[in-house]
Design a protein around this nucleic acid. Sequence first.
DNA 1: CAAACCGGTTTCCTGCATGAAAGTGCATGG
DNA 2: CCATGCACTTTCATGCAGGAAACCGGTTTG
Lengths: 120, 120
Amino acid sequence: MKKKETVALDSTCSKELMAATDTLTILNGKWKIQIIATLNYSGPLRFMDLQRLIKGIGSKMLSRELQDLETNLLVKRTVLNTRPMTVEYELSPHGKSLERIINSMRLWGKAHRKKIAARN
Amino acid sequence: MKKKETVALDSTCSKELMAATDTLTILNGKWKIQIIATLNYSGPLRFMDLQRLIKGIGSKMLSRELQDLETNLLVKRTVLNTRPMTVEYELSPHGKSLERIINSMRLWGKAHRKKIAARN
DNA sequence: CAAACCGGTTTCCTGCATGAAAGTGCATGG
DNA sequence: CCATGCACTTTCATGCAGGAAACCGGTTTG
């Protein structure tokens, strides 16, 4: 039987994969993609608008996810001095660069559904 | 200022995004990508080989993740009748089709790191 | 003054993902 | 006949993600 050397993988694989895992970590959670896609589709939105558009999200989660996206430079937060104070959230260029990946995931997801449906 | 209709989103957005979320759900967890990438890089591997290659994973997690990947048709499990019983795991074609997405995530992740590092 | 709207924060709670460690069934080796 | 290796499974414990609901400070409206 063939003997396997395990050395090569340890240095190559894990280091390179970290970056992919980073991306996954950033998009992870129940709401991140919905928030990004909603902002991408609708442009700048205020807090309450986002909460109304994204069904089911609570204010705590929305707040936390937006903070998270902001510290990751994906979303830009702007406070407007209007009569009732409003805050606008919009995708940064960096955030918009996620569109391609999300789209790939969308396409793969659709193909995957067909596979699973035809599983018999 | 442009007036926004919020109706279109409810029907368009969430339905289309489900597929992207599906993909995320499938790749979710601490180990999925590592398992897929390891199998993609090294070809068919036995249980213990996988556990030795993927540092830190326990047998329970490996077992569960592999079952999960198998039911999602991403991994093929083959039992070989050898002297001590061995089982081989390998990526299905469908599983291999994830390579493009994982690679996109890897590239984006690298770019993202630079952004964050230059955050000042 | 009370009520409502905005943009959150705080508190409490629950369930799930993950981990460590031991156990299982089978087969071969010494 | 005991130990070892393989491929798992089971048990127990823990931490974190996420949800519900109340609260907060400011401003405008009736």
